[in-house]
Every structure is written in structure tokens, then in C-alpha cells.
Amino acid sequence: MAVSVAVHGHGPDDHGGHDDDIIYQETRDMRLMGFVLFLVSDVVLFSSYIFAYIYLRNSIQPTWPPIVDGHQLPRLDTAFAAFNSVVLFGSGVTMHFALESWKHANKPRFNTFMWLTIFLGLGFLGGQGYEYAHAQIGGWSGNIFGASFFTLTGMHGIHVFLGVCFLFALWIQTQRGVYTEHRFFGLTAGTLYWHFVDVIWVVLFFLFYLW
């Protein structure tokens, strides 16, 4: 993407190096702010469903998981989810290193870490799929446990999936030479987004597996 989005009509080629730099910094700051605000509103989206989950859960205390057809539903598989979480958090670490490598102009190292991140992300999704297949909690539409669990983790899963796509697109951009050592706003945004998805998972993990 060209930097001309913010002030349309002002492409990088219109101006000499110095002006160009200033425009770059200004538009980058604006986009960074916009992106952070977008993440804030995304936090509200998750918070709303987390509120819903807590509300529903509290409304049928003291039994949780709920009793359906005479049987209390099993708890979710915490051990497996913990393992899966490690995969996701690991991808956060690799993403961090990817960005650092980029800043230090270490392209091969960047590529390695970027792909590691993407694979770990996909691995997490695979683990999530495995868990969906094995969770005996009555499916999405069976009861409020299933409803809140699948809605929240599903929404998180979609975020991870979009994140993977995002990272992949960023990687292609880097191969096409869109970013330089000094201009890599897309990578910053991708990293922010990826860490954001991690943090949400911490909360979800606590709510569904530890509480």
C-alpha cells in the first residue's frame, strides 16, 4: 500500500526525500492510532461475550458445568488446552523475534521466525479443531455452556485465522519489497494484532479451563 491513504493524492513520489519522510511518519502515526483504536473496539467485542458468559454462568450457580439430560457436563480438557496455549504464546514470542530481526535487517532470520509464527498459529487452530471435536459439552446450540464456549473460542479462532492470513500477506509484502528497514508499519500492526490475540486467549483460558 502506498502511503497516500491518509492524505489522498500525496504519493511518495510527489516530494523529495525529506518531505516524504515527514509524510511517512505522520501517516504512520495516524494509522497506528487508528489501528490501536480498532483493537480497543475489538476488546469490547470480546468483553461483551465474556460478560455474557459470566452472567449466564452466575445465573445457574452452583452447578457449572450445567446439568443436561440428567448428567452434569464434563469439564473441558485443561491439560490439552494448556499445551495448545503454549503453542499460541510461543507464536507470540516468535513474532516478537521476527519483528526484531526485521528491524535489524536480518532477512533470513525474519523469514524463519515469520514462518514459525504462521505454523504455530496454524498449529493452535488445529489443536482448537481437535478440542472442538472432542469436547463433550453438547455442541454449539445445546446449552449455554456450549453456546458461550464455542462462541467465544470460535470468535477467537476466527481472529487467529485472520491473523494467520494477515501475517501471510505481510510476508508476501516483505518479499515484494514493500517494507524497508525503516518503514515497516504493516509489520508493527501485524505484531500488535498477534499479541492482542494472545492476550485475549489468556483471559479465555482462565475463564473456561481454570475457573
Partner: peptide
């Protein structure tokens, strides 16, 4: 209770109705 009743009753408070009221 698990065998015979929980199809209709939760063990939550009265207003947590399934088919019948909660009996907790």
C-alpha cells in the same frame, strides 16, 4: 436426582427454570 429429576430441574435457584423450577 441425576437419573430422574435433572432432565427437568436444575439445582440452581427457583427461577433458573428448565422444564420445572430450580430446586437448589
Amino acid at each position: 436426582f441425576g437419573q430422574k429429576c435433572s432432565a427437568c430441574h436444575s439445582v440452581g435457584p427457583f427461577d433458573q427454570k428448565q422444564v420445572g423450577p430450580g430446586l437448589g
